[in-house]
Amino acid sequence: MNLKALNKSLWAFHFNSGSCNGCDIEIIAALTPRYDVERFGIKLVGTPRHADILLLTGPVAMDMKEKLERVYAQMPSPKAVMLIGNCGNSGDVFYESYSLVGPADRIIPVDVYVPGCPPRPEAIIHGVVKVWQKLEKEAKK
């Protein structure tokens, strides 16, 4: 399968699993004129069925576990997951909270981790580059 075609047009679906909205704002900031990720063919889509890459924010609250699994299953392959923010990576300030089931990589396979609270848009774009590198490596195999 030619995954290179995927690299030039990643459509992203944004999933908030209980985030404080900080990371979500930074994702939107990456779309604004200053950073403009549409230069690389990246755009936000409204449904997981259209998506190539899942932008996951938040520490995955108990209620969101099942929804996250369903959204991940609804995405057509080949697909990648990008975990944005400290919450999903480690739990951050919600570490060992009674209402969490995260970190997120216990629930769905994560390809790229972007730490930060919240990460800057540069960091998110850097994460996208990591996704490209990973997909290219898979394409070579």
Partner: peptide
């Protein structure tokens, strides 16, 4: 054109 080529290689659910 790139979007179209990508959509053609994606899984059709």
């Amino acid at each position: 054109f790139r979007d179209l080529r990508k959509l053609m290689i994606k899984e059709n659910i």
